[in-house]
């Protein structure tokens, strides 16, 4: 009876040991560990568990920690420059919004939604936020909707369920430092679709830890004419010289689109850097915690096996003496 109880407790402890190891090394690695039922060994199978898997895991976690720390440093060093460039670009857009207004409620035939995302990942949830907002805008806008996606990440998420709405995908805008020339050529591609209402969705950079998903609306010249007639903006309060009103509005609408896109690209890439900095800091911290736990497990197991061997030697010796 007492022997059976002893065996049961051993198997229970072995199971516990297995589940503890599983939480550290994962199920797949656990398959490679050999658990030998050894009721004769009074150390509950500790010695029979290979520490090699834990050692490998420790090495890989350590490497991941180094990589994420380096990525954080890179993002942090690029952030300052990006932020300055982005803040200057705000001065370009604000006067245009003051003059022509941001009129998101305009009802028109077609709405072109332009989600701006990053080309690279590992930057937290900013791209998912943009995609979520784009879906909401697409569902809530009246009339036909179409999509022009900027950036690899939003393309990946939207090309599956919204492929029928996709018209254009623009990639690699920030591969070389972004220029206004790039933004204007992208604008020409987008305006080539002739949508009366364009809504650009991007992450507005507030601080290193805060990014606000933002919708900027740019209308076509016909819509702006209607808006000025209705008094939605203060365009008609200005006295005009030179070309006619509609022509000037056409120029302004095109320029506004270019400026808004330029600003949106910059805001989004600055947010990307800030968000990457944060998420990489978190993963470095997590990797550090994990490494600590693994080291503890490794050392504890090693120490246990040493203790067992010592006990065996001593008890053997005392048995001989006795």
């Amino acid at each position: 009876m007492s022997k059976r109880v002893f065996r049961d407790s051993i198997s229970l402890l072995e199971r516990l040991r297995r589940s503890e190891l599983q939480s550290f090394v994962g199920t797949r690695a656990l398959q490679h560990i050999e658990f030998r039922p050894s009721p004769s060994s009074c150390t509950l199978g500790i010695r029979t568990v290979s520490l090699q898997v834990v050692a490998q895991r420790m090495k890989s976690v350590g490497n991941i920690q180094k990589i994420t720390a380096a990525m954080k440093m890179v993002a942090a060093s690029r952030l300052k420059g990006a932020q300055t460039k982005m803040e200057t670009s705000r001065g370009l857009v604000q006067p245009l919004f003051r003059l022509l207004g941001d009129i998101p409620g305009t009802t028109s035939g077609e709405t072109m939604i332009i989600p701006v995302s990053s080309d690279k990942g590992l930057c937290g949830g900013i791209n998912s936020t943009v995609v979520k907002f784009s879906k909401v805008v697409a569902h809530s806008s009246e009339g036909e909707t179409s999509l022009t996606v900027v950036g690899e990440k939003a393309r990946g998420q939207l090309s599956k369920s919204y492929s029928h709405l996709l018209r254009n995908v623009i990639l690699d805008v920030t591969k070389i430092p972004l220029t206004f020339a790039t933004a204007s050529m992208v604008t020409d591609v987008i305006l080539g679709q002739d949508a009366p209402k364009n809504q650009i969705i991007y992450n507005r950079f507030q601080s290193v830890i805060s990014f606000k998903p933002t919708v900027a609306t740019v209308l076509s010249v016909e819509e702006y004419e209607k808006a000025s007639d209705k008094g939605f903006n203060k365009f008609d309060e200005y006295e005009l010289e030179g070309p006619g009103r509609s022509e000037l509005l056409l120029d302004l609408a095109e320029f506004k689109m270019g400026a808004v896109l330029y600003n949106a690209f910059l805001e989004n890439s600055t947010s990307e850097l800030g968000s990457r900095m944060q998420s990489m800091e978190n993963s470095t911290k997590n990797a550090k915690d994990m490494l600590g736990k693994l080291t503890l497990l490794y050392n504890r197991t090693r120490q246990a096996s040493i203790t067992t061997e010592l006990i065996e030697i001593i008890s053997g010796a005392s048995a001989l003496e006795g």
């Binding site: 018209r167 995908v169 690699d172 070389i176």
Partner: peptide
């Protein structure tokens, strides 16, 4: 350098991507 332009665009028609 402010003249430099680089981007890739892919036209989509009927849910299928065209050539970049």
């Amino acid at each position: 350098p402010r003249e430099a332009v680089y981007f890739k665009s892919v036209k989509w028609t009927d849910g299928k991507p065209g050539k970049p």
